[in-house]
Every structure is written in structure tokens, then in C-alpha cells.
Amino acid sequence: MAAIKVTCQSGYYGRVDFTFISGNLGLDLAGTVGQRRGGRVDLLDNPEDLARWTVSAGLLDEPPAVRDDDLALAARLRESIYRLATAARTGSAYDEADRLLLNEAAGHAPAGVTLGPGGLERSGDLRAALSSTARAAAELLGGPHAALIRECEANPCTRLYIDASHRRTRRWCDMRGCGNRAKAAAFRARGQHQG
């Protein structure tokens, strides 16, 4: 699966890079937090970042209005999706509170998709974008592809993704990023042992 990288300008914080490499919008939302086990990096640091993410994700054509409480809701949904996907990956039971939060978000009307004079048009507010994201996560977690959820093996990456490789042996969230870094580190380590 090809990685899609979208660079956005974020007022005070500079550039924010969003990547859509997980194979599911819910996992891509969870992936807006990197390095979860140390040095945590949050790409949705402010309401403007979240508004831009909805457009970058292809959910809406225009950034929606986002308040601080909307950002907090999106962060709770993101963490619920991450925990649910981790439970699916490890074969654990889903946490009831996380499942209910996902279902509540999915229960809102999703983002609208219509064919306009110039092509596809996507519209709605933030709740609609989060509903579409939650629905994608629910379809993944409730279907057969839940067994294909993996966590990137590159340290310190903690990105979750769907392993759609032919043999189900994919080890990294993105070959061009984490995969290349891991292979380069292994090559350097072999060179040190031979020298």
C-alpha cells in the first residue's frame, strides 16, 4: 500500500506531517500519536491541526470549525481506537467503555459525499468526519481484517497498520520510512561486526 504524506502549515507549531499508511482511517487517526512508549509526539496538538487532518484524510473538502472540547473528543476517540485495535492485535477482549465511545461516534451522521459539477464533493462538520472515521474503525474491528492489524517493529515507532502483504509478513508501517531506517541500521550493525 502506498503511503500518502500530506504536509500542512500549522500556525505557531510549524509544519505538521500527516501520513495515511495504516490501511484504515481509524488506524490513521490513532497514528497521529507517534512514539507512544516514550517521547510521545502528538500531531493533533491544537484544533487547527485536527481541522486540517479531516481535509488531509479526504473526509471533508473544507476544514470544519473545531473547538477545544472537539479536540478533546477526537483525542478520546483516537485513544479508544488505538486500545481497541491493540486488543484485536493481541487477541484480548475489547474494553466496554472504548467500544461504547466508538459506537457513539459512529452513530452520528457521517460526512456527506456527493457528485458535484466538478467531481466528488465531501461536506459536513467535525462530528460527521469523526463519525466516518469511527465507522471505518468499527468495520475493521468487527470484520475479518482485524486479525491483520500489526504494530510497526521499528523502534520507537508504535504505528498500527493492516498487513495486506501477500504472505502477511510485513514488519514496518511504511517501507520508505521505518523500513528503510531499520534496514540501514541492520546494515550498519553488520558492518561493525565484520570490521
Rank of each mutant, 00 (worst) to 15 (best):
S131L: 01
S132M: 01
A134N: 03
D68R: 15
R150V: 03
H108V: 12
S165T: 12
G107D: 00
R76C: 11
Y94Q: 11
A75L: 12
A111W: 01
L84N: 03
E62N: 00
E121Y: 02
S132D: 06
T32L: 04
L29V: 07
G116P: 05
V33D: 15
A3I: 08
L148R: 14
D174P: 06
H145A: 11
E62F: 05
S92T: 05
P144L: 07
L73E: 15
A88D: 10
G31Q: 08
E153G: 15
T158H: 01
P110V: 01
R170E: 07
A88E: 09
L120A: 14
E48F: 14
D174N: 15
L50S: 11
V113D: 09
G119D: 09
V66H: 12
S22T: 06
D69M: 07
R150Q: 02
R36F: 08
G34A: 10
G119N: 02
I149H: 10
L140C: 02
A182S: 15
H108D: 13
K183W: 04
D28M: 05
Q35N: 15
A30K: 06
T158R: 10
S10F: 09
L101W: 00
R67M: 08
K5L: 09
R127S: 04
G143T: 11
H166P: 05
R171W: 11
R83N: 13
I149V: 11
A85K: 01
L130S: 03
R67N: 06
I162P: 01
A146H: 05
E121M: 13
D163W: 09
A30R: 04
A97G: 14
A72W: 04
T133V: 06
R181Y: 07
D69F: 03
V55I: 05
A106M: 02
L29E: 07
A87C: 10
A182W: 06
E121H: 15
G39Y: 12
R36T: 06
A129Q: 00
A147T: 15
K183P: 01
L59C: 01
A182Y: 04
G119M: 08
L25W: 08
A75T: 11
R168W: 13
K183G: 13
Y12R: 11
